[in-house]
Every structure is written in C-alpha cells, then in structure tokens.
C-alpha cells in the first residue's frame, strides 16, 4: 500500500487539473486498509507527506476505511457495480467514511479523483 500511495503522490503532482481543484485543500486524511493506518497530509493540493500508523496522536479531518481487495477492485479499469465509487464501497459495506464529511464533500471531486489515480484508463468500448 505504501508503494501505491507513493504512486498516487507522483501522479497527483503530474495532474495539473487536480492540483488546481485541490489548491485550497490542506488537510490530513486517514486511509485505513485492513486495519493499517496511513496518514496523508495534503498541502495546497499536493500530497506533502505519507505517514504510517498506528497513531493516536495524529489529528485527521476525515477517514476512509476499507480493505485491500475492495481497493484492488475499485482500481480496475471498469469496476463492478458498487466498487466503482468510494460511496459505492460504503453502500456495499466494503468501506466506511468518518469525520468531517462536509470537508470531504466540499472537496469531493478532488478526493475521488485522487483516490482513483492508480486506476488505469479503460480501453474504448465498441458501442452498438
């Protein structure tokens, strides 16, 4: 997971539109995967630091708790229903979002697209 987060950090820096969307976002977000904690500190839209837990001292604004298999499915080019969106993971019982939800919603497009950065683009479909 640490390597994936580093990849996301790098892809974020290479995504000018995300940096523009997140330019006012300077918060710490907790990502918990199978109980392992990762504290992501964003500054002006950049992922400035990734700190592994556990920690009872690190304040965070909101948290996404899920499992590695759910994230692997979320990162598929065309995920199955429910695995296609962060709120889908919550809906099917494979994710939980805690904390200051309003801050998440105010920055929802930025955070959703950040979380989807490991996803590879799907091949174009043949359409009837």
């Amino acid at each position: 997971m640490r390597a994936t987060l580093a990849l996301m950090q790098s892809r974020l820096d290479d995504s000018p539109h995300l940096l523009r969307l997140g330019r006012l976002f300077s918060e710490t977000v907790l990502i918990e995967v199978d109980g392992a904690e990762y504290y992501l500190t964003f500054r002006d839209g950049h992922l400035a630091a990734i700190a592994e837990g556990p920690s009872r001292k690190t304040p965070w604004r909101f948290a996404l708790r899920t499992d590695a298999d759910a994230l692997a499915q979320f990162w598929q080019p065309r995920p199955r229903p429910g695995f296609h969106d962060l709120f889908g993971l919550v809906k099917i019982g494979r994710g939980r979002i805690d904390g200051d939800i309003l801050t998440l919603v105010k920055n929802l497009r930025f955070f959703k697209e950040f979380m989807a950065l490991p996803r590879t683009a799907p091949q174009p479909e043949e359409t009837a």
Binding site: R78, F87, L108, R109
Partner: peptide, 15 residues
C-alpha cells in the same frame, strides 16, 4: 458538490 456526489451513479462503461 452535487456533480461530484452524483458521479457515484454514473457507470464506468459510460463514454
């Protein structure tokens, strides 16, 4: 915010 929320309801098969 509304657009970001309802994007949860759009299929990944959508162009």
């Amino acid at each position: 915010m509304g657009a970001a929320l309802v994007s949860a309801n759009i299929s990944p098969h959508a162009p």
